[in-house]
Amino acid sequence: TPAEQLLSKCPWKEYKSDSGKPYYYNSQTKESRWAKPKELEDLEGYQNTIV
Rank of each mutant, 00 (worst) to 15 (best):
24 Y>C: 00
31 E>T: 00
2 P>Q: 12
38 K>M: 06
29 T>G: 01
12 W>A: 08
24 Y>H: 02
43 L>M: 13
44 E>M: 08
45 G>M: 11
41 E>L: 08
23 Y>N: 02
3 A>T: 13
27 S>M: 15
26 N>H: 00
39 E>M: 08
25 Y>E: 06
16 K>A: 12
4 E>P: 10
7 L>N: 11
49 T>V: 05
24 Y>Q: 02
41 E>Y: 10
25 Y>K: 13
45 G>H: 13
7 L>D: 15
15 Y>L: 11
25 Y>L: 03
6 L>M: 15
49 T>F: 04
21 K>W: 02
28 Q>F: 06
42 D>M: 10
5 Q>L: 12
41 E>T: 07
18 D>E: 11
22 P>D: 04
37 P>A: 05
13 K>Y: 00
23 Y>M: 05
49 T>H: 08
47 Q>C: 11
8 S>K: 02
39 E>T: 05
5 Q>I: 05
31 E>F: 00
19 S>P: 01
9 K>F: 07
29 T>P: 00
6 L>Y: 04
43 L>V: 11
19 S>D: 08
4 E>S: 04
42 D>S: 07
3 A>P: 11
4 E>M: 08
12 W>H: 09
20 G>P: 11
50 I>S: 14
13 K>E: 09
24 Y>G: 01
27 S>L: 03
8 S>D: 14
39 E>P: 04
26 N>D: 02
38 K>D: 04
13 K>R: 11
1 T>L: 03
26 N>W: 01
15 Y>T: 06
31 E>H: 02
34 W>Q: 11
11 P>M: 12
22 P>M: 11
10 C>V: 10
21 K>N: 02
26 N>M: 00
35 A>N: 13
38 K>F: 04
14 E>A: 09
40 L>A: 06
19 S>Q: 13
1 T>A: 09
37 P>E: 00
26 N>P: 01
22 P>K: 10
49 T>A: 04
7 L>F: 15
3 A>R: 11
6 L>P: 12
34 W>G: 11
50 I>C: 14
29 T>S: 04
8 S>Y: 06
47 Q>M: 08
19 S>M: 09
33 R>I: 05
38 K>Q: 09
49 T>M: 10
4 E>F: 02
17 S>V: 02
18 D>R: 07
17 S>N: 11
24 Y>V: 00
5 Q>S: 15
42 D>P: 03
24 Y>L: 01
5 Q>T: 09
28 Q>D: 04
5 Q>A: 13
16 K>D: 00
26 N>K: 04
42 D>Y: 09
1 T>S: 05
39 E>V: 05
43 L>N: 09
44 E>N: 07
13 K>H: 11
36 K>V: 06
47 Q>K: 05
32 S>H: 11
31 E>S: 01
10 C>I: 11
51 V>S: 04
17 S>Q: 04
25 Y>N: 01
9 K>E: 09
35 A>G: 07
41 E>P: 02
49 T>W: 05
17 S>H: 08
8 S>L: 06
13 K>M: 13
17 S>P: 04
33 R>H: 14
45 G>I: 10
26 N>R: 00
18 D>A: 08
3 A>Y: 12
50 I>H: 14
18 D>N: 10
25 Y>M: 11
5 Q>F: 10
39 E>Y: 00
1 T>N: 11
10 C>T: 14
7 L>P: 06
24 Y>S: 01
2 P>F: 15
30 K>D: 03
48 N>Y: 02
42 D>F: 14
45 G>F: 14
24 Y>M: 01
4 E>H: 10
43 L>C: 08
45 G>N: 14
21 K>P: 07
24 Y>I: 01
18 D>H: 09
